[in-house]
Amino acid sequence: MMDHQFILVDFLVKHFSGTLSQADMQALQKIFEDDPTLRERWERYTSQGLRSSDAEFWDRLDLDQARAKILNYTSAKPAKRPLHTRGMRRLKIYAGLAASLLIFLGVAWFLNATPQDKQIVADQVYRYNNDVLPGGQKATLTLSNGKTIALSDEQTTIEETHGEQLQILDGQLHYKPNSGQAELASLKNTLKVPESGFYRMVLPDGTKVWINSASELSYPLAFGKSTRNVELRGEAYFEVAHEKNRPFIVSTTHGDIKVLGTAFNLTAYSNVASNVTLINGSIQLTNKNNTTKQIVPGQKVEFDGSVMRVSQANIEKETAWQHGYFYFEHDQIQDIMEQLARWYDIQVIYKGPISKKKFGGSMSRSVSLAEALELIKRGAGLEFEIDRKTVTVKNKN
């Protein structure tokens, strides 16, 4: 299949230069029959253009292997011909293959050197090198057979194993209520939200879930008869459908949340301690040390593998992302920038000593990165620089 990938480069160059012939298209169809994944790439490249994320695919192509193929080809003995004809033939072979290699290297360089990130735009107001647009509604769904589908807010129907149909309605992924068939309970789906994204869904039992950036939720196509189990990495807001005899359990890196019917916000990124804020109802938290704690509405529990700390929660702050805005209260700039990094899909660099001062305030998640930074720096005594998707933070003086 690797040879087909080399050939695809040549066809792409012909397509973009307008020299792709009917014979080329027939050859492409044969390649697509042998390797359907290349058809998907071809359709994406020719309809959407080449993107920086495609560089990973081309990086996996072995340039040494490409050169070896060409050298082997050019060193093959030609059929006996008159000396001057043989020399001309060899010259043509070298010229043609050298051009092919240059095309291959050129496309690979183009993919790496000219990323087309639609989130990066010109800054028309604040004089940064560029601006970055905010995140939006996007996610991928991995089906039980391993196939991954990009989700959007467009209405559509997705077919799962055993004929189960999943629907996207009003920008939400919906699972139809089912009777908990054993064969469906053993099949798992995973919804993954990238950085600069969020998504909403309704699970088979009617539970509503809002999933934040850089998060992943795994769950079965049907819940079991005794419990309803899901796994979360990242942040999500749950409105759990009440079922007295079938508790809803969310498993995280640091422990499990057990509920019957309630609303709560759970943050469970693996690089920091997890925390859960109870909006209404009742939950029971069990950490990895099997320590159990029950909290009441308005309380927040911060927990890792060994310690649980209970405090009064600021409900507005904990759920602001679900309602479309940032809310900061006694937060250091590093904590603020961590939230921005996930929403705008940026890298943050700190230059020099940065104040430990704490800040508060709120702003919409629909503003561009430049506007967000301007709102922050007014009272923070900081300067920011934007270079594509890298933000440098430094003291003003």
Rank of each mutant, 00 (worst) to 15 (best):
I103P: 02
P115G: 00
N129E: 02
T142S: 05
L141H: 01
P115M: 05
I103K: 00
P78M: 09
T140C: 02
H84C: 05
R127I: 02
W109Y: 14
T142H: 10
A122D: 06
A79M: 05
M88F: 07
P82Q: 09
N130W: 08
F104T: 06
Q119D: 05
A98R: 04
P78R: 06
L102E: 04
L102F: 14
W109G: 12
A122R: 14
S75V: 06
I120A: 05
N129K: 10
Y128L: 01
K118V: 10
N112K: 08
Y94Q: 14
F104M: 10
G136N: 00
I120T: 10
S100T: 02
A113P: 13
G135L: 08
V107P: 03
A76C: 11
A113L: 12
P115V: 03
Y126R: 12
V121E: 01
V132K: 09
V107C: 06
L143M: 08
G106W: 04
A79Y: 03
L133G: 02
R90M: 08
M88P: 04
Q124N: 15
K118Y: 10
K118L: 06
Q116E: 07
L111K: 04
A76D: 15
N112E: 03
L102V: 14
T74N: 00
T142K: 15
D131I: 11
A79D: 03
G135Q: 08
P82V: 11
D123I: 11
T114S: 01
V107S: 05
V132M: 00
T85I: 13
P78L: 13
A99P: 12
A108P: 04
G135S: 08
Y126N: 15
K77C: 03
Y128V: 08
S75A: 13
K77I: 14
T74A: 09
R89H: 07
T114F: 09
P134D: 02
I103F: 01
Q119L: 06
T140Q: 07
K80T: 12
L91R: 13
W109V: 14
F110W: 09
S75P: 11
S144A: 02
L97W: 12
L111E: 08
Y94G: 12
Q124Y: 00
N112W: 07
G135F: 05
D131A: 13
R127F: 01
A99K: 10
R81H: 08
V125S: 06
L111C: 06
T142M: 07
D123K: 14
L97D: 14
G106P: 08
H84E: 15
I120M: 02
I120C: 07
T142L: 01
K92R: 09
A139K: 10
T85F: 02
A99R: 12
M88A: 05
Q137P: 07
S144F: 02
S100I: 10
M88S: 10
P78G: 07
L102H: 05
P115C: 01
R81S: 10
K77E: 11
A113W: 10
A113M: 14
K138V: 09
I93V: 15
R127L: 06
P134M: 04
A95L: 12
L111P: 00
L102A: 15
A122Y: 00
